[in-house]
Amino acid sequence: MNLSNITLGQYFPGDSAVHRLDPRYKIVLTLLYIVTLFLAGGVFSYLVCAAILLVVIFLSRISLRMVAKSVAPIGVLILITAVLNIFYTPGENILWQWWVLKITTEGILSAIRMIARIIMLVAGSSILTYTTSPIQLTDAIESLLSPLRVIRVPVHEISMMMSIALRFIPTLIEEADKIMSAQKARGADFESGNVFRRVKAMIPLLVPLFISAFRRADELALAMECRCYNGGKGRTRLHKLKAAPKDHVIFFTVLLLFAAISVAGRFGY
């Protein structure tokens, strides 16, 4: 078992048009894309959604293989959805029937629609995480949530917690790797035995890992206090998010496109 090859925060550095788009717009557009997918109705609107996705993938210069990789883990989910839709969609046009199971034309169509929807949904959101660094993401979320400050939601603190968590994932993985090596050197066996034995075998890994996480948290808190960190009040940023006129144009163009698809979808196209 090697922990170092787990990819987390799958950001792919680049300088494409998609990478450069203001992360706040990227998040909003991704959410709207998902909404549009659910409002789309007929073949036509689905094809347009797929075309938009392909254009964005092409613009981002992320390879199709990478996008496919992000869809792969939900293969089982897609399969279950497809099976349920095929057998449980009520319809008139029965193609095949056995006991309580029957396949209808409507069922097959609905299954295809659901599969397309899920694949495009996951592929679309993976483009967001592929082209936006975790730091940009948290900054954008902080900025998008900032109106909630009015009702006393600690937006800055939430986003700081997210950034710190993201920052420490690789550190903790490295630490876990080290501790595992050290315990293996004392004959610990993480790889064989049944579930209970394996869970028990994790104790020599988890206890030191927790202790080190607490130690790091303590040290970080101290370091932050030494630099007079006192929350979000009056804090300025090095990299201020600033949407350029180009970003506004892209945003509103795509927004109109999504609206058009949704309306067309409602009329069954």
Binding site: I179, A182, K184, A185, I203, P204, V207, P208, I211, S212
Partner: peptide, 17 residues
């Protein structure tokens, strides 16, 4: 082999549990 070749890592106190 790991019992015959004992390896003490850097900062081994971090492995105590």
């Amino acid at each position: 082999i790991r019992f015959r070749v004992g390896l003490v890592f850097q900062y081994p106190e971090h492995q105590l549990f």
